[in-house]
Structures are given as C-alpha cells and as structure tokens.
Design a protein around this nucleic acid. Structure first.
Lengths: 252, 252
DNA sequence: TTCCGTCGGCTACCATACAAGTACTTCAGT
DNA sequence: ACTGAAGTACTTGTATGGTAGCCGACGGAA
C-alpha cells in the first residue's frame, strides 16, 4: 500500500506511471531484490502496484531493451540471468566511454569540476565510515557521472549507466561482504589526482585499472553464486513454476 | 496496402507487430522519408499500417528512448529535429567505441576477418560505380559492424548503431550530392591496411580521421538545411497543424 | 510401465474504450 | 476592432477485453 501511495503521489509530480514503474522495477532488479530468473507477470505486477497492465507492459518492454529482462512471447517475462557475454560487453562499453571522456577531461576540467569530485570523495569516505553501502553505491554512481561531465560528455552517461547496470547486479552481491570500499575510494582519489595534474596517460591508467578491478570482482562472485549466472550462450528457456506463484518476493 | 500485406506476411516469420512497426518507422526516419519535425499521430499511423494503436504506441516509446522522436504528453509525437548536442554526443560515443574495438582488433583480427572486410570494400567500390548510394549505405553499415566484430566486440555494435542513426539522418542529405564515395572507400581501405599490418596507432588514426570527416560533413549540411536542425538547446514545442493533417507524407 | 493425445491454465500480444490534458477556434462582451 | 472565455477537435495516457500460443499435468492405450 505504501508503495502504491508513493507511486500515485509521485505521478502528480510530472512523471507518468510507466516511468515510475520502469524505475521501480529497474532498481529492484539491479539491487537483486528481484533475483535473476524470477518470473515477472504483467498481471501480477499490475495487481501488486495497483495500476493497469499497460504501463507495466511498456516498462517490461523497455527493460527488455536494456537486457535486464527476457521476454518469451506467450510464455512469460523473466529477470535475465547474468550472462558472460553481457558482462564482457558492458565492461567494454563502460571502459571505452569513461576513459575517452576522461582523456577529454584532463584537458578541459576546471577547478570547479575537481572541487566537486573531491566533495564526492569526502562523502564516499563518510559513507564507508558509516558502513552504508547503499549510500556508497549512489555516490559511486554520481562520481563516475560527474567525471564524464568534467570531460564535457554528460550526455553519454546514460549509455554508460545502462551498461553499468549489468555489472552492478553482480557487484551488489559482494559489496556488503568486502571491506574493499577504502580501496575503491583510494582508486577514485588517484584518478582525480591525475586529472588535476593534467596527466593524460596517468589518469587513463588509473581509471582503467579501477574499472577492471571491478570487472575481476565479478568473476570471483561468479564462483560464489553460479546460480545467478547463465553459463550457456544459448538462452535458457525457463521452466514454468507449477506451484503457487510467489510473484514479487517481498510484495506482502 | 502493399506495405500492410508485407507487414502481415513478415509477422508470420517470428517477428511481432511492434518490432515490424519499430523497424519501419526507424528506417523511414533515418532515410528522412519522415522529416525532422513531422507529426506522428498514433491513431493515423495505426490506421495507415492497418494495426491497432498498441504496437504503434510501443514503437514510438522505443523511438523516443533512441532520441529519434520527441513525445509531448497530451500534445503529440514528432520526429526529433537534429540537435547540436545530440550530434556531438553521438559522435563521441561512436568514436570511442569503434576506436576501442579497433585497438583490440589490431591484435586479435584473423586473416578471415581481413578477407571479409576486403570483400566489403570491393562491394563498396561496385556500389560506387553503379552510383547506388543506398547500397553503399548498407555496405558502410556492414563494414563498421564487421570491423567491431574483428575486435571481438560485435555485441557493442547496437550501441554504436543507435548513435550512428543520429549522424546518418544528416548524412543522407549530402551523400547523393557529393562525389565523395571514393574518398570514404579509400579511408576504409586505409583502416584495413593498418589493421592487417598490426599498426595500433596507425589504425586508430586512420579510423578516427574517417569518423571525424563524416562529422564535419554534417556541419556543412547544417548550413544548407538549417530547417532540419534545432539551434536552441531548449526543446521546441512544435505548433499543432491546424489544417487537414497530411500524416505520413507518402502514405497514399 | 511407458507413450501419446487431450485438456486446462497461464502467458504475452493485440485491439478497443475511456480519461486527462492541450491548443486552436469561435463567439460574446466591451 | 479588440479582448477573453467557453467550446471543440485533437493528442497521449491508462484501463480492460479478447485471442493465439506454449507448457505441464492428467488419463487412456499399448
């Protein structure tokens, strides 16, 4: 009920139902609240959210384009399992775009840009000390977006964000476990330092190393949670659950 | 009628109505058959294509995500004008991804890859001699896609393709006019030569120069056809056409 | 026991009806 | 003639009904 009320309240603030449902489902998938392989029925979701099937359906279509769900006509819609190829592809896209933007940033970035990036680093340190991984995730997102903006390429961020979503699903599994937040912050700091010193190759290497470390983290997670990954390249046609469907796990 | 029949026939081959309408509208927009600023009414399109509003609407939502149409709620949907920022953003994304893929290709590409690329160069030369710009456009698309595949990054092509769409709309205006096809082919050839010689920086510079030349071409077109561009960053709220709506220009 | 046809329930897909909102037109009042 | 407010014709957004198709379970035949 609370989520439904919030949905209708937000709808009054210029966003339509489709966008709200889209954002809600997207965050639930990335946070693994909706696990890979879970069935997403248009009817069930519409009933749970208190809206009609239309905006739910349109949201699922968009999520399908993003690669976060797989739609099998006349069969069902399922949260996509994390595929090896998707991970590699997302990493390539992210690395290419973020590093290219950074190279422009090294020459273009202003003192204001650097100051805002350093403010985010301080906030990240505070989040680490509070042991608040959710806040750190948001700040990490802001940091990388701000870094691209410093190079004059803020418009390309949505593309990176979409690729990043695939990686984040896997990262969420590890972040509460690890004490690596301080390592990530030091890597972020190194990037800003190199940026401020206008060191083109230094900044590039610092960011690339950071991004690849995140990538290798995913591989270690793969060993711990193989059930969330899909080893086969061919899409796994999920079996229909014959028992009483649970729908969204925490809906009640 | 013919298009409707083709639509229903294709639907039997595993593609649903939404995908067909999406592809149809996308090609019409990129080919400038639907000009920037043109109104796209869900009702009119549905009637012309002989389908209901639902798949048309879903297609327009997807085109909106791609930046090819602007949807103004309760007002209308319009083919987006070519915006300075969108062009620059698309160029950045394309250059970053294609060049990054090429750098991997220089070390990874096999003789088979090079052979297929050269076959495409031959076909491009033939298209030039036939003075068939449409065929050249398709071959250009295939060449760049194949180039990324040689680096092992075929999965990233759709992202490039989406960015490329913005640039292609402008290029279509110039290509029939210019005799520059031979120049483009020689640039393509240079890239393959450098790739075959495993010259990392040489290949990068060759491709980057080629892509930027395409980019500057757009600027010259901007001077010739300013009405298709949108100078203001703020979105132009289009005026509603009060006379009898023509709908899709060449529908009859 | 094993195999095959049938049936029931579920799915996404498409079509259609209704609601909310915008902009232009028209016409009354000044 | 000019201003302004109601009316009208359109738009997209949302809700709901109906259809084709897929899957898994059930039951009879070999």
């Amino acid at each position: 009920m609370a989520s439904t009320e919030g949905l209708h309240a937000a709808r009054a603030r210029g966003r339509n139902t489709r966008q709200l449902v889209h954002e809600l489902l997207r965050s639930r998938i990335i946070s693994l609240d909706l696990e890979p392989g879970a069935a997403l029925s248009e009817n069930d979701l519409a009933a749970e959210l208190g809206v009609s099937r239309t905006p739910v359906r349109e949201s699922l279509i968009l999520l399908g384009e993003e690669g976060l769900v797989d739609v099998y006509p006349q069969l069902g819609t399922f949260v996509s399992r994390i595929r090896e190829r998707d991970i590699a592809s997302a990493q390539f896209i992210r690395e290419a775009l973020e590093c290219a933007a950074l190279r422009d940033g090294v020459t273009k970035a202003t003192a204001h840009d650097v100051a805002e990036l350093r403010a985010l680093l301080v906030a990240q340190t505070e989040a680490e000390q509070r042991e608040d991984p959710e806040a750190f995730f948001r700040l990490d997102e802001q940091f990388h977006a701000r870094l691209m903006a410093a190079g004059g390429h803020a418009e390309a961020w949505p593309v990176v964000s979409q690729a990043k979503a695939q990686l984040d699903r896997a990262r969420r599994l590890s972040l509460p476990l690890t004490q690596q937040l301080s390592l990530l912050i030091s890597q972020h700091t190194a990037v800003v330092d190199q940026l401020e010193q206008h060191d083109l190759d230094g900044a590039d290497q610092a960011l690339r190393g950071h991004l690849r470390q995140v990538f290798t983290d995913v591989e270690t997670i793969r060993a711990q949670h193989p059930e969330l990954f899909s080893d086969t390249d061919a899409p796994v046609r999920p079996r229909r659950d014959t028992r009483r469907r649970t729908g969204v796990p925490d809906a009640g």
